[in-house]
Design a protein around this nucleic acid. Structure first.
Lengths: 368, 368
DNA sequence: TTGTAAGCGTTATCAA
DNA sequence: TTGATAACGCTTACAA
């Protein structure tokens, strides 16, 4: 091992070993050390660091110089502990990585930064309770507001109220009626949008339409979109064939391409008494297309395929996927607006429902 | 506004307003309040909360009962401030949302949990310095180790050493030679893998192969993959046509489908003296396919297309994309192994290079 | 313009 | 088995 040139600095009573480049080895510097080095009090250093008024510019410059030189980083835990609020907005996403949320996250971040707030992106695991995570985060970082992306939101009013923070639930299926007194929300009407696309398929002459839903027990978006499907069939005088409702098995990644692919293969083996497949996510729709292609079927000649969401990807796929696009950027924008309206103007809970956009593309056709 | 039933609790000298459900309205409970309610000291509560030995089971049960009942959540900032270490692993991702990282993140999380560590996922913005973020996080959460996913890593040894934490850089193009004394790494040999796929195209009879690279100035994976391209052409006795090297413009989302799509349209307008297109990302390759399709070109009959990465998506696309797949799950596993080997066994810096897997699929063909 | 000192909510050390 | 009490590193009255 090579001997390194170094120097010693007294730090909070202990001694610090420094490399020449200024890199410490025995623990991080604190505001106290900076104060000592600069020959001022910690208060003054704090003032310099936080751009507080009432500090001599020269003093400030000198301090900041040392801060830079020593690469001092203030300890956020200590800050958060002391501070009552944290000029920041937290976004909790159940399933970062889900391409559906990408544009939303980007939009939110831009908006938040424009308002000069700090943006905190917190991922929530599938098996975690988003409110639990939110409570922890709230205590720890003390943000001014929270946006929830995804998840299910079967929460009691008490739990939500406990959060005691302006929050907006965005793009979540069924919101507990009770939550709506406490939390704002932004979403599309899943039943209506689902209805529209199924209605389109019916009007295009499809009489037997398979649907790929989530689990049989689902009470969230899948249940809503399935309801839209049932209503559209009913209104078009078509019977619902329960065999054509394809629920996902446990453990499958419900909305994934993989699931669409495998379940489509299975469906093709089981029956062929349908002319269209409606998947409640674009991802599944693409997996379905692939399965059809491998089975030698042509899209849309042999089968029409429709999805839901309007992922960017769905317009690059071959064929492009017929779908109903959720206006994700607008929705995220609205979520942010509502949040800031609550934070800065004290406005109460708001609920906004957006219209989806029907995109009839290459994967579907009219039959006669 | 409806009047709510509530009760009052003295809290740290102040008074708290409680709803009947136990929800507080005037600030969160602290360990002190719990101690007071239970008639024990804060130390004892802390011991109960942290599963420390040397506490009467009955006392513990009673405390935990109150904790549950009052929905007490310990303040993490205070914990982090006091604790020297935090039985946790942090994963810093430049570009969460990038589908390439999804399986890696999932693999890492599983591994970390299996080791009974807490998993911290931290997203790093494009414009942020990953080492800066890591330093902050290290100070704030005091994790036992860090995995970096993505980014560029042109960092001085001093900056990296300053981190003073076991860390592994995973799936990053060019690692500064200096960093390698400080940080472990896991990656594929971008030059070699790129060489292989271009070599395959050459051997398949393609003499003029366009490549979609990142910016002209890039010094990262793009530069490496481009180098592989040049070498493969050279070894196959083919000249490099600089016009067929398509750099991305500023501001474009360099590796995206969108970029592949637009730049392919442009390329088609400009020239047609090539038979294959090699994109340094699968995403681009799919955008390219879409552009070709819209131009009425057939793949692979008119043009062969190849990508890089081996995204799951690339096997569901129509046509499936010829690519070289990075063994992302194995790489993530290796990164975790190395990290824990360093943390628990004190092993030094390690570097592992993985082989990619050539996947010759529908988007390319041999020509004669 | 600067400094002193009292917390913020925990954990850790010691003594009981 | 428990409890005082001193940190942890910072912010913030309040005083000078």
């Amino acid at each position: 091992m090579e001997v390194q040139h170094c120097f010693i600095l007294e730090k909070s009573g202990k001694f610090l070993l420094f490399y020449l480049e200024g890199t410490t080895v025995m623990g991080a510097l604190t505001i106290k050390d900076i104060a000592k080095i600069c020959g001022v009090s910690v208060t003054t250093v704090s003032r310099a660091l936080n751009n507080y008024p009432g500090i001599n510019q020269e003093t400030k410059d000198k301090i900041m110089e040392v801060v830079r030189e020593k690469q001092f980083i203030p300890n956020n835990s200590a800050r958060n502990l002391k501070k009552l609020e944290n000029h920041s907005i937290a976004v909790l996403v159940k399933g970062v990585g889900n391409p559906f949320f990408q544009p939303m996250i980007a939009t939110l971040e831009k908006f938040v930064h424009k308002q000069k707030y700090t943006f905190i992106l917190q991922s929530v695991n599938d098996n975690e309770d988003e409110i639990e995570v939110a409570s922890q985060l709230s205590l720890e970082k003390k943000p001014k507001g929270i946006v929830f992306l995804g998840g299910y939101f079967k929460h009691t009013e008490a739990k939500l109220r406990q959060l005691d923070l302006p929050c907006v639930i965005c793009a979540v299926g069924s919101i507990d009626e009770k939550s709506s007194n406490v939390c704002s929300s932004v979403h599309v009407d899943d039943i209506r949008e689902s209805y529209r696309i199924v209605d389109y398929l019916c009007k295009a002459g499809h009489k037997r339409i398979a649907i790929f839903a989530a689990t049989r027990e689902d009470k969230s978006i899948s249940a809503l979109r399935l309801e839209g499907y049932r209503r559209a069939l009913a209104d078009n005088g078509l019977p619902v064939c329960e065999e054509l409702i394809r629920y996902s098995n446990e453990g499958e990644n419900i909305y994934s391409m993989e699931r669409g692919y495998h379940d489509m293969k299975k469906l093709l083996k089981e029956r062929d008494d349908f002319t269209a497949i409606y998947a409640i996510s674009d991802n599944m729709a693409m997996g379905i297309c692939r399965a059809l292609k491998e089975a030698g079927k042509r899209i849309p000649d042999d089968y029409s395929v429709a999805g839901f969401d309007g992922l960017d990807m769905s317009s690059y796929y071959i064929p492009t996927i017929t779908t109903v696009k959720q206006p994700v950027r607008e929705m995220a924008e609205a979520a942010a607006e509502i949040l800031f309206d609550t934070i800065e103007n004290g406005r109460g809970v708001q609920h906004r429902t957006f219209e989806g956009e029907m995109l009839i593309r290459e994967s579907s056709r009219a039959i006669n």
